[in-house]
Design a protein around this nucleic acid. Structure first.
Lengths: 195, 195
DNA sequence: AGGTTTATCCTAGGATCCCTAGGAACGAAG
DNA sequence: CTTCGTTCCTAGGGATCCTAGGATAAACCT
């Protein structure tokens, strides 16, 4: 019998693919093991357990998503950058629903593992960089970043949950939302309810 | 032995409370049964199974959330209505994280059960009603509703997932986001990328 | 009240899953 | 070739979901 020669990454990738196919909550140690042609107990040499696997999938997805966004927004500024950023985000969520869900699930991730992942930090930089063209200063910048991320995530989450049952296509509303966010950023309101 | 005298609603409520305490994914038939002082097999007289229970929790939560929002926005208009709507939404998510998660999870719900639930329809009406003051017409209205719902949901979801690790308090960003959305609705942009 | 019916709750058990313990075999390193 | 570390295995405990079928409490009806 030749040995499978697995690594933690391969297990993670198998889990991520399974998550995209059948949903994150249906990713099971046994299923992943079967997929890899291995007994489930064997996975524990590479991964601490199901929790840990989920965390790894989340980190993998965060990295991948960040990379897609970085590629999509490279060299762009202003509205072009905003649209490219948002579309890359949404496209990743569509293409990899299971992975995307993993990024959103509040999981405790092994700290020493998270330290290695450059995804999150990179993502923050990217978002701030995208907003550079709009001339915002702190703390408005942070507020704007949070608003954008909220809208992007909320939209794709509702989309995935079937929250847009209406006739109008989500795509049209999406384009419109980006238009709206762009003009909003251009005329970022002065602190109205200055509490 | 006196009989427990359960109903589907009581099982659902027990499940919902458990979800708020330990997280939706940790809601198990056995746990709910233990909580109710009953063997797990007994629950299947009231609920089809775990899937079904989750669906019922989701519908319950949707109803509750809608009611809170309706109470909060009663008699209000314009920005007051917007802020009250959004705060009621966020507050419900904070108070009932498990229930709220259930509303977001893409679950297939028993159609005949969903037909009874007035939550979703009511919620749609409420949202459209809240926007009445801004003088938008279709299809802008639908786009605006989707944008708002996306932002609200996205914000609380990221908040729950620990996505706002920054120094600035989420509360401040939230207030700011509502200001921004308000001015956005007042100056809803003409269709820019009219594709 | 007594008997019938219905629904609730039970015991029993199969299938699946997570995870641990400890042993076997493969591959590399001396 | 021997030794050693790692990968993978078998075996098994504990938990879960769910079904089947039986007991029994409560409601209903004459």
């Amino acid at each position: 019998m030749a040995r499978a020669g697995l690594t933690a990454e391969q297990v993670t990738i198998a889990g991520a693919e399974l998550a995209d196919q059948v949903g994150l909550d249906r990713v099971t140690m046994s299923q992943v093991a079967r997929q890899l042609g291995v007994k489930d107990a064997s996975l524990y040499s590479h991964v601490r357990g199901l929790e840990d696997l989920r965390g790894r999938i989340a980190l993998l997805a965060a990295d991948e998503k960040t990379i897609r966004i970085a590629e999509a927004t490279a060299g762009l500024a202003g509205k072009d950058a905003l649209v490219a950023f948002a579309n890359a985000w949404r496209e990743y969520a569509h293409r990899h629903p299971g992975r995307y869900t993993a990024t959103q699930t509040p999981i405790e991730i092994d700290p020493e593992l998270a330290a290695k992942a450059l995804g999150p930090r990179r993502a923050v930089e990217l978002t701030y960089g995208m907003l550079r063209g709009y001339g915002l200063a702190e703390p408005d910048l942070t507020d704007a970043v949070r608003l954008l991320r909220s809208t992007f995530h909320g939209f794709v989450a509702l989309e995935a949950a079937g929250g847009f049952a209406h006739r109008r296509s989500p795509q049209q509303s999406w384009v419109r939302a980006l238009d709206a966010l762009h003009t909003l950023l251009e005329h970022w309101p002065p602190s109205v309810g200055d509490s």
